[in-house]
């Protein structure tokens, strides 16, 4: 059951009671989100149906293609910053050419998926939470349930599928744009020729970096969608509630991206 009844709990008596209730709510909310994800994964069997495919492609377009602009700008500047920072240090040893590997490896491993995750959490996650929150508040989700259309299959599954595909793609795109940005700084500020830069970048990049980065991005996509959908469905109390859900969704996504990103890096390196 996605649409939830309003809840009421009598005011607790003391500090410990409030803390305990908070902890329980936290557990229950995260449990709800996990169950939502599980149920969405179970609903993935419908992904090959034509009507679902149409929806998945639409979501991919909305999330992926429409975020390209901001992602490009952020990626290029991330690469430029990385190159400049590393370059200024390396210049002291006359080793500026190593910015190629520095930018490439850090973009592939860390910054690519990380930046993509943060941007998608900020623009896609918040939009998703707001949309589903508004739908919940205006009883559209309840209407779907009454028509016996499972909101998880109809709303969550296409979003998760779309984001699981698009986030790695966008992360890869971020990496490329970041490397390009680093190259621009290398050429203009640090006297590193484009060829030398790319050679250096290629020499040091490993396939493992790429795989782990893309896997990370995939997880980020799933996390962003799950958290945002959960927060959207948990919306109560009208327009104010939508604002609260959106804010919570973005914050929780950011935290998860940081924590999970660390775990993945730690597990693979």
């Amino acid at each position: 059951m996605i649409s939830r009844e309003p809840e009421y709990f009598p005011p607790s008596l003391n500090y410990y009671g409030r803390m305990g209730r908070r902890a329980m709510f936290l557990c229950r909310d995260s449990g709800h989100a996990v169950l939502l994800l599980v149920s969405a994964i179970a609903n993935l069997r419908y992904v090959f149906e034509k009507r679902s495919q149409k929806e998945v492609f639409m979501q991919m377009y909305v999330f992926g293609v429409k975020s390209l602009g901001v992602i490009t700008v952020v990626a290029v500047f991330t690469g430029m910053i990385l190159a400049l920072q590393a370059g200024l240090e390396l210049q002291k040893f006359n080793q500026q050419v190593y910015i190629g590997s520095a930018v490439m490896v850090s973009m592939l491993r860390e910054m690519g998926p990380f930046m993509t995750g943060l941007i998608l959490a900020a623009c896609v996650g918040s939009a998703m939470a707001a949309q589903l929150g508004t739908m919940t508040v205006s009883e559209e989700v309840a209407a779907l349930e009454l028509m016996s259309i499972d909101p998880v299959r109809f709303l969550v599954m296409p979003r998760i599928a779309a984001m699981a595909i698009m986030t790695p793609v966008l992360a890869f795109y971020t990496c490329i744009m970041g490397v390009v940005g680093g190259g621009i700084v290398g050429m203009t500020q640090l006297d590193v020729s484009w060829v030398a830069y790319i050679e250096n970048a290629r020499d040091f990049a490993e396939y493992k970096d790429l795989y782990v980065g893309l896997f990370k991005a995939f997880l980020f996509g799933v996390i962003i969608t799950t958290v945002s959908c959960h927060e959207g469905f948990a919306t109560t109390e009208g327009a104010v509630g939508v604002g609260i859900s959106t804010r919570r969704a973005v914050i929780i996504c950011f935290l998860y991206i940081l924590v999970v990103g660390y775990f993945i890096t730690r597990l693979f390196y």
Binding site: M24, L26, C27, R28, S30, G31, H32, V34, L35, V259
Partner: peptide, 17 residues
């Protein structure tokens, strides 16, 4: 029952983390 399932899953997630 539904609440308990959610709480249990939530606790499980917290333990994994």
């Amino acid at each position: 029952r539904e609440l308990t399932v959610e709480v249990v899953v939530g606790v499980f997630l917290a333990m994994i983390l």
